[in-house]
Design a protein around this nucleic acid. Structure first.
Lengths: 252, 252
DNA sequence: CCACCCGTTTGACTTAAGTCATAGCTGCCA
DNA sequence: TGGCAGCTATGACTTAAGTCAAACGGGTGG
């Protein structure tokens, strides 16, 4: 799966070594996540240098990218699939702090070890970069640092929304909020939302929403009975009227 | 209160207009928060330009800096005092997402309105910058954008800790975590921690921890009876052994 | 100096969500 | 195809935290 479909239509057939072409590296040109990834602002030349530092990896479902406490040697860009990020207490209580989609960036950490774990939910492709080289690249490419700051600001806003959810919303509002925000995030990336795929289990949803499996299950049942959602299968939800669900999510 | 104590010990007495001196603007030189603020990486000249965009403001306790939904025209740097940042649902439920200390930066927002409110807890000084000029300054001073990304990364890590707290910790663990993290944050800035000042009310602590006033009060009482804390006054806590309290905060 | 006000504490009772137990599905492998 | 394993759903009961109510206390202004 590595190096076929290499030529882009208007690529000039120059020796690779020159790197004079303004186009993107072939895998980047074909990358469905590039336009909303951290690398979006890079021009052809910078993208070539950036991609030169990358290891492209494919993970099976339910594989660890890294664990809380591991040496934070790398940063990751999710290009396909989905990843769940979590923190745990020593007695096993776990909080999932985010579900990542293609285009999401992973591994920013102050300090030399990861403060959270990351595990794939589905088959997932990432570009993996050594932290040191990534940092040096950032220093030389302020437009990428700018982009990263914008992404971090968005994540901070999402984190504040999630604090409001965890601190103050009822179980049914939490589940409604979860479905609405997942739908919004997919829509923002141009992905299908009807039906909305749920690559995570009820247990993972519970650990994301600060609830138990049973409470999540009961909330799904209640939403179904109120016809605010319909379960096509257990991991595909239809949302007949997103705005109705959004109202519920906001507690009105 | 504006322009006394102007001279720094080694400042060369040159005409201000020249701006050739490598030193800092006088108010910045005297600013207790500068070394851990967003402006920390600026050299004398850049700091002069930056400070030239600032309005210095002093707020009384319990004053709004801005409200959720206001046009996001400015960004702020807290130089003295304390600020609380919150989001609310339409029915009045409120979640405080952070208590800001000197050196904290406020107002990063994607989109053109604030997604949260900010209110002073105590008498507070800030430097206030017009968003547009601040953005342009960032573009010309990548070292500051780098610094801001580092600060945002730290805030993201703190937000994940808070999600774990809100989603999975018991009432007493939440209050213990709150006290430990407030103490750690003050210590990191070189502020006194014994006794630890609590500029916020029990109600604000409750809205930060996803609890009620009564539950917070009972948790304080319980911690006091276990001699993990002592209340010197209602807003000054002694923590005889921070590590004991930290263990409790982490659920062990 | 007193009295009122407002934040805090404490007690009695309620409830939303958790726990425990069981049953139902679904899909996978033999 | 059939049975097992693991997720999901549902019911019965428990509990941590919320609600409501009253008392306490510290600070301020008359």
């Amino acid at each position: 799966m590595s190096s076929s479909s290499d030529r882009r239509v208007h690529a000039v057939p120059l020796p690779q070594a020159l790197k004079r072409e303004p186009g993107l590296p072939a895998p980047c040109a074909a990358c469905a996540a590039r336009t909303f990834s951290v690398c979006a602002p890079l021009d052809g030349e910078a993208q070539h240098r950036f991609f030169g530092m990358a290891t492209r990896l494919q993970y099976a479902p339910r594989k660890l990218l890294f664990q809380e406490g591991d040496a934070a040697d790398h940063v990751f860009n999710v290009t396909e699939g989905s990843v769940c990020v979590s923190k745990a207490l020593s007695d096993g209580r776990r909080q999932i702090t985010g579900f990542l989609l293609p285009g999401d960036f992973l591994g920013l950490a102050q300090g030399d070890s990861y403060a959270y774990s990351a595990e794939t939910l589905t088959e997932t492709n990432v570009c993996k970069f050594p932290r040191g080289r990534f940092q040096r690249f950032l220093a030389e490419n302020p437009q990428m640092e700018h982009r990263l700051l914008g992404m971090a600001s968005n994540e901070l806003a999402a984190a504040q929304d999630q604090m409001l959810l965890l601190g103050r919303k009822t179980a049914i509002e939490r589940v409604a909020s979860f479905l609405v925000s997942l739908s919004d995030r997919r829509a923002a990336r141009g992905f299908a939302t009807s039906p909305l795929p749920l690559p995570m289990t009820r247990g993972e949803i519970a650990d994301y929403l600060g609830l138990t499996i049973e409470t999540v299950s009961r909330a799904f049942t209640k939403l179904r009975k109120q016809e605010l959602i319909a379960l096509e299968t257990i991991d595909r939800v239809q949302i007949p009227d997103l705005e109705n669900l959004r109202d519920l999510a906001l507690g009105s």
